[in-house]
């Protein structure tokens, strides 16, 4: 099934499996309100940055703890949905 997906594979960060390293391919800033967007930028989310989902919240798999650069941050699933990533193999 994975063979059918064209390369480079891009998916939203909320669908990236725990422990999978990826690079941010792009961020859909229009999906975020100004405050949330500013905070994501402050955490260092940007094209080309290495990310890795580390932990999921116990209820409804939300929020998600994500390593970004050398920091770990927690964001909600809906915000992770605005971040597109390319998994590293």
């Amino acid at each position: 099934m994975t063979a059918a997906i064209p390369s480079p594979v891009s998916l939203s960060l909320d669908r990236l499996a725990i422990g999978t390293k990826a690079l941010v391919a792009g961020i859909d800033w229009a999906m975020l309100d100004a405050g949330d967007a500013a905070r994501l930028r402050n955490f260092g989310f940007d094209e080309g940055v290495a990310v890795e989902p580390l932990h999921l919240g116990p209820f409804g798999r939300d929020p998600i703890a994500i390593r970004v650069g050398r920091m770990t941050v927690a964001i909600r699933r809906k915000h992770a949905g605005a971040i597109h990533v390319t998994p590293l193999t």
């Binding site: 405050g35 949330d36 905070r39 994501l40 955490f43 929020p63 703890a65 920091m71 770990t72 941050v73 927690a74 964001i75 909600r76 915000h79």
Partner: peptide, 8 residues
Amino acid sequence: GGGFMMEL
């Protein structure tokens, strides 16, 4: 209904 974003 704001977000939840914090550094761990």
